[in-house]
Design a binder for these strands. Structure first.
Ligand SMILES: NC(=O)c1ccc[n+]([C@@H]2O[C@H](COP(=O)([O-])OP(=O)(O)OC[C@H]3O[C@@H](n4cnc5c(N)ncnc54)[C@H](O)[C@@H]3O)[C@@H](O)[C@H]2O)c1
Ligand SMILES: NC(=O)c1ccc[n+]([C@@H]2O[C@H](COP(=O)([O-])OP(=O)(O)OC[C@H]3O[C@@H](n4cnc5c(N)ncnc54)[C@H](O)[C@@H]3O)[C@@H](O)[C@H]2O)c1
Lengths: 212, 212
DNA sequence: ATGAGATTGATTTCACATTCACAAATAATT
DNA sequence: AATTATTTGTGAATGTGAAATCAATCTCAT
């Protein structure tokens, strides 16, 4: 174990490991699993699995492997999903509604949805009422929410980000394809889907040109 | 210019640069822009912009900058989005419909949608009729489609991937949170949204523990 | 009890990605 | 024409992440 300066890719994989363990529980009665099995399950090498985990401690048993329950509990604590965190979503459009209807995110619960469109305000999405964005800042403060999902059009994202951080939001999962300019004390993950597609198109072209 | 072995992060940024240039056209009449301006617009350093572009040639003019139109055309060619590529989408669920309704992806056109749910087959999403997945393989061959988007539940993704690659698909944009096991001649981009969220929760916890 | 086989966790090595720093080139100014 | 401001493109240095390697430890069969 070494602590200090954990690679970002490692952090992203923690949840992948956790999700795999969760799913495995039901499938078979396996109590213990090896880094090789875990790695194969999620598509990384066993070396990398051990490396990732060893940043946070010694959870395995040499010659044996990892106890599923113990590893799962430890991952929960490490990631910080021992209890569900309350989250808001801004922008009940196409993507926003898809996210709201998805019930498989672990560690979070979307508790409020905001939009500015009068045709959407008042609608119900997955048991949640879409509220007027004018109420947003007050509700964030009232409920002491720290994490927000931005699913508004690109042109409005920066403004929304300023509003919500002003009201106390400290973490933003941003789906708008713009780089948010924020203070250092706000953590942001940008989920720019288009560039994954761009990369795929590039690679497909390379593949085709190579063969022809 | 150096060619050979281009970093994957570089490839992903190409589309970000392109999208920024597209958007800038309307905003002002700027004919030329510097790597600094482009970098600030998309949230990377000017050094990185120049490094990325220089993998593919010399598009700028020293002391001046980059001609917007010329750079845009070159990026189009490099990424491979000079003409729209026909694409299919499998799984007209929550996420699938959000993607179908999004008209801002560049370089692709979703031309067919498939699902296995009889309640969804026949429905129209963004002017496209959802077709029975049984027709999928035939239509892929008929229209000679090479790129597919997978938006089906995790348990079905591997099967769908085998079907479509069997029918000729060479590139997959996969939203199911599972590592697809495919031959070497198929390119895959996995868009595992949950791990971005996991990473954000982790960082938020770190932030909070640090302050308290 | 002992040895064979399995597996972890740490160290070392290697590969990849970004930043730094500067020569070369251009435009604007005097 | 000479000078100054910019700005590109790239070699070198640095930083970051993954793979390879291996000693230490555990289980189990004999
Ligand atoms: N839909 C996709 O598949 C997809 C793919 C990639 C990226 N994105 C990005 O995700 C974001 C959302 O996309 P979408 O397709 O859901 O768009 P959308 O237009 O369907 O929805 C946007 C919603 O945000 C609301 N809104 C606008 N300004 C607001 C404000 N200031 N406060 C609160 N609500 C506001 C609108 O009323 C609308 O309901 C966009 O930035 C888009 O670029 C979407
Ligand atoms: N919705 C989200 O916000 C979200 C977030 C993260 C990941 N995902 C992933 O994206 C995928 C789709 O999510 P969703 O929320 O749209 O799920 P969904 O259940 O709403 O939609 C899935 C669709 O796939 C169809 N389907 C199932 N098996 C099929 C098959 N063999 N062939 C064709 N169609 C088939 C179903 O009929 C359904 O319409 C899932 O793998 C999910 O884990 C979704």
């Amino acid at each position: 174990m070494m602590r200090l300066k954990i690679p970002e890719p490692t952090i992203k994989r923690l949840l992948v490991y956790y999700r795999f363990l969760e799913n495995q529980i039901g499938v078979n009665e396996q109590k213990v699993l090896s880094s090789r099995e875990l790695g194969e399950g999620v598509g990384v090498t066993s070396n990398l699995v051990r490396r990732d985990l060893s940043f946070f401690g010694e959870f395995g048993c040499q010659g044996v492997g990892y106890d599923v329950e113990i590893l799962k509990d430890n991952l929960k604590k490490i990631i910080g999903i021992s209890q569900q965190r309350q989250v808001i979503l801004v922008g009940a459009g196409n993507l926003g509604r898809a996210l709201l209807n998805y019930n498989k995110f672990v560690g979070i619960e979307i508790v409020e949805v905001f939009d500015c469109d009068l045709n959407k305000i008042g609608n119900t999405v997955n048991k949640l009422e879409v509220k007027n964005v004018k109420l947003m800042e007050e509700i964030i403060k009232e409920r002491d929410i720290k994490l927000a999902i931005i699913a508004v059009p690109a042109d409005y994202a920066q403004n929304v980000a300023l509003q919500i951080t002003g009201a106390g939001i400290k973490a933003i999962w941003n789906f708008a394809p713009v780089p948010l300019k924020m203070n250092e004390d706000v953590v942001i993950i940008n989920e720019d889907l288009a560039c994954g597609l761009g990369c795929l198109v590039y690679k497909l072209n390379q593949l085709e040109q190579q063969i022809v």
